[in-house]
Amino acid sequence: MLHLVNKSPFERQAFESCLGVARKGSAILLIEDGVYAALKNTPFEAKVTEAIKDVKICVLGPDLEARGVDQVIEGVEVVDYGGFVDLTTEHNPVQSWL
């Protein structure tokens, strides 16, 4: 399954709740303000590094660029809009954490 997270992990619980239910073989795509969860040197880095062992974590490149951030945690895959589409076709169901 694919989890979409678009809220900042500093402001909402969505990302951490998502990590809690994302099971082996599923994927998480961080978009919009969700991309801040993909960055190094935050309180979420250790959780992301741990989760990557079982779950594929991706982040949308254009949303990183818009926010002027590029220090992405090792193992998190940066994807473009085409990659976004591929993820939604490869995984079923797709769940948006609003």
Partner: peptide
């Protein structure tokens, strides 16, 4: 403060969004 500090982050490029 909080996520507001991201408003001042330099290097923002919004072309592709």
């Amino acid at each position: 403060m909080d996520d507001g500090v991201y408003q001042l982050k330099k290097g923002c490029d919004t072309k592709s969004v």
